Computed example of a mutant assay.
Amino acid sequence: MMPLDDTDRAILRALARDATQSAGALGRRLGLSQPATWRRIKRLQDAGVIKARKLDLDADKLGFGVTVFLGVKLATKGRVSLEDFERAVTAIPEVQTVEHVLGLYDYRLRVVARDIADFERVLRRRIMTLPGAGDVEANVLLTEERRPGPL
Rank of each mutant, 00 (worst) to 15 (best):
G48K: 06
L30K: 02
R39S: 07
V66G: 03
R29I: 02
G71D: 00
V72D: 00
V68Q: 02
G65H: 15
W38G: 06
L62S: 11
A47M: 07
Q34D: 11
R43Q: 03
T67E: 07
A47G: 08
D56L: 11
G65Y: 14
L26W: 09
L26F: 05
L26H: 09
V72W: 00
G48D: 08
I50L: 12
L62Q: 13
V68W: 05
A59T: 06
A59M: 11
G63D: 09
V68H: 02
L70V: 06
L30F: 02
R40S: 03
F64I: 13
G65M: 15
D46V: 10
F69P: 04
L32M: 14
Q34T: 09
L26C: 13
V68R: 03
V72C: 03
A25K: 08
L62T: 14
R53F: 15
R40P: 08
S33L: 00
G27H: 00
L44A: 07
W38I: 08
G63H: 15
V72N: 00
L44K: 01
Q34R: 14
P35N: 05
R29S: 11
G65E: 12
I41K: 10
T37A: 03
T67C: 10
G27F: 00
R43P: 06
K42F: 05
D56Y: 13
D58M: 15
V66P: 01
F69I: 15
T37F: 01
T37V: 07
T67R: 08
R39K: 07
S22C: 02
K42R: 12
Q45L: 13
D60K: 10
A36W: 00
D58Q: 10
L55M: 13
L26M: 10
G31R: 02
T20Q: 09
I50A: 12
A23R: 02
L62E: 11
G48E: 02
K51M: 11
V49H: 01
L30E: 01
S33F: 00
R28A: 08
Q21N: 03
R40F: 05
L70C: 06
G63K: 09
K42C: 07
K42Y: 12
R43T: 06
R28E: 12
D56A: 15
G48S: 09
R40Q: 02
S33Q: 00
V66F: 04
V68T: 08
T20R: 10
D46Y: 09
K61Q: 15
I50D: 09
A47F: 03
G24Q: 12
L30H: 04
S22E: 03
A36C: 00
D46G: 05
L44Y: 09
Q34M: 11
Q45D: 10
L55C: 09
D56H: 13
G31M: 04
R40V: 08
L62M: 15
D56F: 10
R28K: 14
L57Q: 14
Q45S: 12
L30M: 09
A23N: 11
L70Q: 05
D58A: 15
K51T: 14
Q45E: 14
